[in-house]
Structures are given as structure tokens and as C-alpha cells.
Design a protein around this nucleic acid. Structure first.
Lengths: 342, 342
DNA sequence: CTTTAGCACTCTCCTTGTTAGAGTGCTAAT
DNA sequence: ATTAGCACTCTAACAAGGAGAGTGCTAAAG
């Protein structure tokens, strides 16, 4: 689609623009990239690139700026070989991830922090979803008056821990019978299946005459209905150092979106069903609020089944090669952890 | 200290300044507050207030702006009677809190959200600290290879749920013996005591010859050492709508501070040991990064013992009366929940 | 003796004008 | 096909001027 020379120029523009914002002129390119062409020739080529929609002029007689499709072409044709600087960053990331690997509880939180620290963009991670996790065991423990502490143990790297309120006080013995009943009946099924079954059975109320069963159903409904996935977001302060984030209103809208965890959750949910790193550049983003930003995400898996995702959000003027590398490595690392010695 | 008239003027300046930033002039006061004085007189009084350090002129021939001590005086002499608007807000808050009260798990998260929604400032809450919680029971459940799921049940509204890595695989029977041992030995003690005891006993290594005990100690060390309090922060996007937050660098520094949960945690830790709402105005804040902002906080208790705190962060140009009301009500509400029917 | 009206003065903010600099597009020469 | 040269365009930065808001002071009024 693009001859070698045009591609070279496009890459030059993008790299210069990434290293410092502001339109890139033809002379700047000849200075930094010894291609052996004069500014005039480069201007002609840039003009062609503009016609093709890869570059754009903020105004007549300014330099050129990459468009979203410019970035897209650049990302698609990224040479997979890493630069030394990326390689160095990778090894730093791996070193840091190794350190936190043992802290199972806050691993994902820390992972998002690592991502943001190294990329200087926003790092995001979500806890594994439980759609396909199967129930190993449920524990019901009397808590306070009318409250029950529920511990859900699944075959996956997920433990759900909830406190639910019951209609009335339930004795420890009754709780044991209840958990026994639930375990016997549902252990080995996926949480999703259990949820559906429970809903169906409750609707089908003739079997509820048994109070044990109806009690159990009430608890199950409470426990299995909610997915309490967590979203970890780090590095908001990082991106504010970037000159791209100078418009407060834009930051505010981004923050507003990010604060609503459901949005992030459903976004990364979709990512989870793909494989390998995904890149959404500016207007390619499904969410309006992200159309000014770029989004690099990758799913992580348990074994081969994707169960969650991590991501980086940054300006469209993003160091894509680096971001992709970071996200990819982190996702693989998490996959390894979740798949480790089951 | 201040005669009635001066105080009236000070309050007028502060109220006008709160409703819209920008220096307040003498004429503006006569327009909005029918005190029955001419602008000239008011100018004289304002000049006095400036000498006393309650007001300040950004530059010659501009209106006056309240200083931190001006706000301090205002807050200290706040008439405790609520305005109707505050009363209305309060009942809305209570209504919202009632709705989320049943959702024990995310109650505090939601509470911080309520705070920020109603105040339009940043809402913060922390989960109860466990310093004085006593251990009711510990449960050790085999998880993955070399990992143990630990469930800690205390007498307070706290359940700690951790996964720890063990040196080697431990059978379910051994885990039962271990938890039995720990329960027998430590149930009824505060977590703090247990932590100290454990550290002491590990140092005192002659009793560790018994492998059961040493195993148990290793687990205890892991479980009791870390305090995994959580901090919930909401409303970052809210404050960005305020004209006070126009300086990106300032926002960045605030965010950077807030992102570090330890800072917030130790700050609110201190608050927990006071009682009633606390107000830190601008430079009164212990933390440098907060000296540009105001901080309204209140502890919540279990029974009478403070176990956590909630707070609002906003500009020094804050609606203090409203913020104090919101924080106070919320803290009382949480206290009620945590003290409810033990 | 306190309060008020009037007036000169000051400072900011906004608008306008000007200039320097950077970069392009075109044309003609290589 | 490429390049040098030149006229043209646009922005960013700075300066100058005017409007507006508000003060401080002084002298008069209550």
C-alpha cells in the first residue's frame, strides 16, 4: 500500500510526534532521520500521505500530525523486533512482576501499578471473571445477628467473600446443613450455571415448600447473582504530566468514565474474549469518552480460557510499541500465575 | 473578638466567595446582603478585617478574598442550626444511605460515593481498622498447590480474606490441626496482640522445634502482619468541574497523594482517634499536598470505639457548613450500622 | 464621632496590532 | 525525479490601549 520511502516518512513523523507533541515539519525530519532526501521531497511525500489520510495539517503552513489511521497503519506494520529500550523496559517489568508475584491478594492491583509506572500512562486491571469458574465449596459462617459470612471457593484463582443479610437468625447447625445441601447439589457446576438454575428454581416455586431448600435458594440467589469483580486503576497522576492532558474538561470526562467501574468492566469483558493485545486508536474506541485517547489491552487466561484483561490508556500520541510490549508481557505473566500448578 | 457587624461582613464575603470565586467587592455585598450600610463603610470594615488577617486582597484595588484564618473563624463560629437547604440535603443523604445499608460488602465504597455526589467534592472512606478487633475464628482451607486460603473472622464488622503461599503443600487434615491450634490459642485476643505475640515467639525460636507450632507461626506471621485496610475514593471527576481546579499541576499533585492509599490511611487513622467532625483548612493540613485544599473528616465507631473514618476533600473555598453536615451524618450512620445488634 | 458620597487612582482582563519564526506549496532549475 | 529558492500563510508571543471593577482617601452630612 505504501512504498518503503513513504512508510519511512510516516514512521519518522509519528516517532517525532511521540517524542514531543506539535506539528512535525519537513526540515525536522531531515535533521533527525538521515534518509538522504531534501525537505522539499519530503514535503511532497507528506502531502501524498495527507491525501491518503495518514497525516493531517492543523492549519495551512504548519507541519504534519499523524491521524488515527496514520497510527493504525503504523501499529499494523510495526516491526515485531523490539528496540533495545523496549527490551530493557521489559526486563524491568518482569523483574518487578516477579517481586510481587507472591502477593496473591493484591497482585492485580500491583500489576496495574507496574503498568502505569513503566508506561507513564494509565494502567488498568480487572480481577478474573467467574463466568466459567466452577464451585468447589461454599462455606457459611454465622456472623452477626441476621448476617452470614459466605466464602465461596472455586477451582479458579478466585475466592468470593461476602456478607449477606438473612431474613432471620440461622443457627450454626442450620448453616452447616444449608452449606452441605448447596455443596452437594452445586459443587462442580459453573457459577453461571448455578445462577441460572437458582433463578429458574425460585420461579418454579412448588419445590420451595421445603424450608431448607427455600432458605438455600435465597442464599444462593444473593451470593451468585452479583459479580463482584474489581477494577484497579493506577497512574492518573502520571498522565497529567503529559502535555496532551491540558484540557480539564477532557480529563474530567475521562475520569468520570473511569470512575464507573461497570463501564471498564464491560469493556475489558469484551477484550477477554479476544486473544493477544488489542489496540484501539482514538476514534476506533467504542466508547465516546475514549475517542480522544488510545487503549491498549490484552486478555489473560487460566490455561487457555481468557478470564480477565489488563489495559493501558494513554493519549493517541502514545508509544504504541512500548505499550503493546508492556501489556503483552504482563498479560502473559498473569496467565502464567493463574495457570501455574493447578 | 469580632463585633456583630464585622462578623456579618466576613460571613457575607465568605458566602459570596463560596457561591462564586473571584474577589468580593464592597458593592456586591450591599447588593446581596441588605445590611443597611453603604459600600464605603463596608470598605472600611473590610480593611479592618484584612488587618486582622481574615481577608486578603489579591492585588490593590481588587475585592477581598477570605484567608484560611478567615474560614477558620467562620467555621468556628458556625451557627449550628442548619439552613433548609442543608436539611434537605441531609434527608436526601439519609435516604440514599438507607438504600445501600443492606449491602454490607460495598457499603463504605457506596458511602464515599454518596458523599461526593452530594457535596460535589471528593469523598473518601476507609474500611474499619482491625487494631482492636478480636479474633473469633480462623479458617484455613487448602487452595491451590502450596497455597492456603485464610478466612479470618473477628468480632467486628471485619472479615479478612487472604491467600497465602506456604513453603510446601499442607494436607487438609494438617490445616485443620493448624487452625485448631491457632483458634485455641488466640481466639479472643486482639489482632494487634496476636501479631506482637507471634513476632515475639518467632524470635524466641526454641519453641519452634515443634513443626506444627512453627508452621502455625509462619501462617500467623503472614496473616496478621499486613493490615489490608481499603480506601475508597470517589468524585475526582466532580471536583474538576470546579473553577478552583484549573491548575493541572496542582491536580496532579493531589492525585498523586491520593493514589497512595497509605497516606490517606495514616491520615484517617489519626482522625479516628478524635471525635466529632474535624476540619482542616488549607495550610492547617498536616500534608503539604493538601495545603491548597480543605479536608473535613469524621471518625465512625463501633459502639463507642472509633474504628475508621470518612472524609471530604474540596477547595478551601468549600461549603463548610454543608460538608460538615454530610460528613457528620454519614459517620453517625456508619456507626449505627457497625454497632447494630451485636 | 460615625457614616456616606464623590472622585482619583490602580490593577486586571480583554481586545487589537505587530512581529518573528516556522513551514508549506509552487515554480524553475538540475 | 529531485532539489533550491521564494512568496505566502499561519501561530505564538509581546506590546499597547481601553473598559470595568474596586479601592482609598477626603470632605460633607447626620
Amino acid at each position: 500500500m505504501l512504498d518503503g520511502r513513504s512508510k519511512q516518512i510516516l514512521e519518522a513523523v509519528i516517532q517525532l510526534y511521540i517524542s514531543s507533541p506539535g506539528p512535525v515539519g519537513s526540515r525536522a525530519i531531515t535533521k533527525k532521520f538521515p534518509i538522504g532526501l531534501s525537505p522539499a521531497t519530503i514535503r511532497n511525500i507528506m502531502s501524498d500521505l495527507e491525501d491518503m489520510g495518514f497525516l493531517r495539517q492543523p492549519h495551512t503552513s504548519a507541519g504534519r500530525v499523524p491521524t488515527d489511521s496514520g497510527y493504525r497503519y503504523y501499529v499494523d506494520t510495526l516491526t515485531t523486533e523490539k528496540s533495545e529500550i523496549d527490551a530493557e523496559l521489559s526486563s524491568e517489568l518482569i523483574r518487578k512482576l516477579e517481586i510481587i508475584r507472591t502477593d496473591v491478594n493484591s497482585f492485580l492491583d500491583n500489576a496495574s501499578r507496574m503498568l502505569s509506572e513503566l508506561s507513564h500512562y494509565i494502567g488498568i486491571s480487572v480481577t478474573p471473571n467467574t463466568h466459567h469458574a466452577t464451585l468447589s465449596r461454599i462455606e457459611l459462617i454465622p456472623y452477626r445477628k441476621n448476617q452470614i459470612a459466605v466464602m465461596l471457593i472455586t477451582d479458579e484463582a478466585v475466592i468470593r467473600n461476602r456478607i449477606i443479610s438473612a431474613e432471620h437468625e440461622i443457627s450454626r447447625e442450620d448453616l452447616n446443613r444449608l452449606s452441605g445441601y448447596i455443596n452437594e447439589r452445586y459443587a462442580g457446576h459453573t457459577l453461571e450455571e448455578i445462577r441460572k438454575t437458582v433463578v429458574a428454581e425460585i420461579a418454579n416455586d412448588h419445590i420451595l415448600c421445603d424450608s431448607l431448600i427455600s432458605e438455600a435458594m435465597a442464599i444462593c440467589k444473593n451470593v451468585f447473582s452479583v459479580s463482584d469483580s474489581d477494577v484497579f486503576i493506577s497512574g492518573l497522576s502520571e498522565v497529567l504530566t503529559l502535555p496532551d492532558f491540558c484540557d480539564i474538561e477532557r480529563i474530567r470526562r475521562l475520569l468520570k468514565t473511569i470512575e464507573d467501574k461497570h463501564v471498564i468492566l464491560s469493556l475489558l469483558e469484551k477484550i477477554s474474549s479476544t486473544d493477544g493485545p488489542q489496540v484501539f486508536i482514538g476514534s476506533e474506541n467504542p466508547l465516546d469518552e475514549f475517542k480522544q485517547f488510545s487503549f491498549v489491552a490484552a486478555p489473560y487466561c487460566e490455561g487457555t480460557r481468557p478470564i480477565g484483561a489488563i489495559a493501558i490508556i494513554g493519549p493517541t500520541r502514545m508509544n504504541y510499541s512500548q505499550a503493546i510490549t508492556l501489556v503483552d508481557i504482563t498479560a502473559k505473566f498473569i496467565t502464567e500465575i493463574f495457570s501455574y500448578s493447578r
